[in-house]
Design a protein around this nucleic acid. Structure first.
Lengths: 123, 123
DNA sequence: CAATATACTATGTAATGCAAGGTATACGGT
DNA sequence: ACCGTATACCTTGCATTACATAGTATATTG
């Protein structure tokens, strides 16, 4: 069946547009990580097949916004790595975004579970 | 507290970017609706405060892609309204998007529920 | 020492949600 | 009849952002 081999890439990318910021903040909750490490860890999830070209600019933006902090760190004589971690502000933002995301999921679930004429609308 | 009056608008808009297509298709599942009717029905949901400038171009796009069909209809001597409904292709697409959306929600739930060092990663 | 892998950076493009403004018609009050 | 408001749809231009692509630099490996 063709259906099973449908490419999810474009739709996935569209879907990620809304939630990537939340996802990255959540991934940095309770741990430090450097760019590629974070990338590979996210890529373990089926809908999170993003690329470097997406992640690095996003990390830059989050840093500019003060939600994460970056710090170069060299382990032994390996290549220096730029480690990221949540700031206090980032923690707060993460909590707010999580709440709002759950609300959005609830709204969409409602729409999916209630097809047909809108009961909210026609009394 | 200022925190409680945080404006969700910008984040909501960002979040909608990923799912609006699914949302509109789901809203047309099992019923016909014209533009403003659909808009008002969506706006009953807290995270779906979109505007006409968002909905109409989206409906155009979905029509161009063959996922919905449009038809002008005049009831009595009221203003003619453009009614939209899902096509067969739209039905199929809706099912596929719904599956993928649920997968994405599961992935994000996983991230939110498992803070700290990535257990998928460090064995 | 070339080839590959790691790690980060930079540039340009396409998609899309939205604000703002536009057109046209119906209806209610005075 | 006239004016204001509501309904209904459309259009233009902008800002954001995920991504592809390419580039730089340093280890590591054969």
């Amino acid at each position: 069946m063709i259906k099973d081999t449908i490419k999810h890439e474009k739709w996935d990318s569209q879907l990620r547009k809304g939630s990537l910021e939340l996802v990255v903040l959540a991934s940095l909750n309770g741990r430090q990580a450097y760019g590629l490490e974070l990338l590979k860890s996210l890529q373990q999830l089926p809908t999170m097949q993003l690329s470097e070209g997406t992640l690095y600019p996003l990390l830059d933006r989050l840093k500019r916004e003060g939600l994460i902090a970056a710090e170069w760190y060299q382990e032994g004589d390996s290549r220096p790595r730029k480690y990221f971690q949540l700031t206090d502000e980032g923690q707060i933002k993460l909590a707010a975004l999580t709440d709002r995301w759950r609300q959005s999921v609830a709204d969409i679930e409602y729409l999916l579970d209630h097809p047909g004429p809108d009961p909210l609308f026609e009394e």
